Simulated assay, not measured.
Amino acid sequence: MTLYKNGKTAEENSGAYGKEGFIYQQLFDLPDLDGNYPVIGSWVIGQEPAGIGIRESVHLITNNQSRFVPHLISG
């Protein structure tokens, strides 16, 4: 995967992405918190919030080695 910013390569990593060989994603500037880049993801089940997860990496491209902290919405 290659991350482009302002038409220039900002970061790259390798991976098996299938025969297509590429993934398109919208660029969102992540906050830089002392060299760590957090991303918040959410789960919705049946139109109801079910949980969130915070994934954090030292890289701009989140990968399967990024730290992950799950949160459960209960009640």
Rank of each mutant, 00 (worst) to 15 (best):
A50F: 05
Y17N: 06
A16R: 09
K19C: 04
V58D: 14
A16W: 09
Y4F: 15
A50I: 00
Y17C: 07
I54N: 04
F28K: 15
G46I: 00
E12F: 05
I40W: 05
H59T: 13
E20G: 09
P70A: 07
T62R: 08
N13F: 07
S42A: 12
S57V: 03
P38Y: 00
L30T: 02
R67M: 11
I52S: 13
E48L: 08
P70N: 04
V58T: 15
L27Q: 04
S66G: 00
I45D: 11
Q26W: 06
P49S: 11
H71N: 10
P38T: 01
S57P: 00
I23W: 02
R67G: 10
L60P: 00
R55M: 14
K8S: 11
Q47S: 11
Y4N: 03
S66D: 02
E12D: 10
L27H: 09
T9H: 00
I52V: 15
P38V: 02
Y17P: 00
G7K: 02
Y17F: 14
D32T: 03
G51Y: 04
I61H: 05
P38E: 01
P38K: 01
Y24E: 14
H59K: 14
W43F: 10
Q65K: 13
E20L: 13
G75K: 13
L60E: 06
F28I: 14
P49I: 12
T2I: 10
L60M: 07
E12A: 09
N63I: 01
I73R: 10
G21H: 04
Q47K: 10
V58G: 13
F22Q: 10
H71Y: 14
T2W: 02
I23C: 03
D34V: 06
N6P: 01
T62V: 11
G18A: 04
R55F: 15
G7W: 01
I61P: 05
D32R: 03
I73Q: 09
F68K: 07
N13T: 15
P31S: 09
G41Y: 08
R67D: 12
K19Y: 08
I73W: 10
L27C: 03
E56N: 10
K5L: 08
G46F: 00
L27Y: 15
S74M: 15
P70K: 05
K19R: 09
A10C: 02
G15H: 01
I52Y: 14
L27M: 03
S42E: 12
D34E: 13
F68I: 08
P70F: 04
S57Q: 01
T2M: 05
A10G: 02
E48M: 08
L33E: 08
I73L: 15
R55I: 11
E56T: 14
Y24D: 13
G35H: 07
S42W: 07
E48H: 07
A16E: 08
E48W: 01
G15Q: 03
T2C: 07
G46Y: 01
I40F: 09
D32C: 04
E20M: 10
I73P: 03
Y24Q: 12
G21D: 02
P70G: 04
T9P: 00
Q25D: 09
E20D: 09
G18T: 01
P70M: 05
G21E: 04
N64R: 10
G75D: 14
R55V: 13
G41H: 03
Q26M: 08
G51M: 08
G75V: 06
D32F: 05
Q65I: 07
A50S: 14
V58F: 03
R55L: 11
D34C: 06
V58R: 15
Q26I: 06
S42F: 11
W43K: 14
D32E: 10
T2E: 12
